[in-house]
Amino acid sequence: MSATATDAPAVRFAAACKSFGDTRVLDRFDLDIPRGEKTVIIGPSGSGKSTLLRILMTLEGIESGRVEICGETLTDRFDGVERAPRGRGRLRKIRGHVGMVFQQFNLFPHMSALENVACGPRLSLRRSRVEAEAEAEALLRRVGLGDKLGSYPLQLSGGQQQRVAIARAMALRPEVMLFDEVTSALDPELIGEVLAVMRELASETSLTMLVVTHQMGVARALADRVCFLENGRLVEQGPPEQVLDAPENPRTREFLHALNLA
């Protein structure tokens, strides 16, 4: 009955509903993301993109419906009746599948780049310091920051900070990586270096990526599939050539048109 870890989709939303007060953000939302797929989510501001990712990172709950990550049910509350809270062990197990990179980087300012990347493995995977730092160093080299190991976040540029943040999330070897407008807070000339790192990650076939972006260049570079979200509904989805170049839905067309003018 319960799907085993390997044949279940990486992410499944089934009739998921989420509101903030009177604002209904997700309304009986359905979405399946197969393992290894790189999904890009686009849509107007306030359409629920961040909320979608935050639910997967367990930063928000849902009121009803179902959300699964790698076959494990994240939340199942029905009819507005909250069920007994999940055991902490279970929540932490689910979080172990997922990594997230934020728009504002959210690095720990009191830790060096190396400590930022090593702290997840050290604390939540209980790796030894030597082991965690060796791995962190390798990851930082991979994102092109081998010479910034000892730098503190405030000493790094936005692009460098965001690359540290990506390395930090990858250090826990998640199966699903969430990127919430990770290039939006960057000066235009710094977007390329972060995008290059994301493209390199996208070459890992087993890694599932969910990328929210307003930048169509980012979408084209990464997407197997593009989802257009509006008012918490999936208006259109398909391969990037279709959704971005020949959208069927008038709402998608309107949104892309407005973006091009901006």
């Binding site: 990172m57 367990t58 930063l59 902490r88 932490r92 979080r95 172990g96 997922v98 990594g99 997230m100 934020f102 504002q104 959210n106 690095l107 720990f108 702290c119 997840g120 604390l123 939540s124 930090r168 999330a169 826990l172």
Partner: peptide, 21 residues
């Protein structure tokens, strides 16, 4: 709040979040 959320994303426990972050 963003710092606490980063700690959740790194799967830290509540105590680790308090003492390390």
């Amino acid at each position: 709040r963003a710092q606490r959320e980063a700690a959740v994303a790194l799967n830290l426990t509540g105590t680790q979040t308090l003492t390390r972050v």
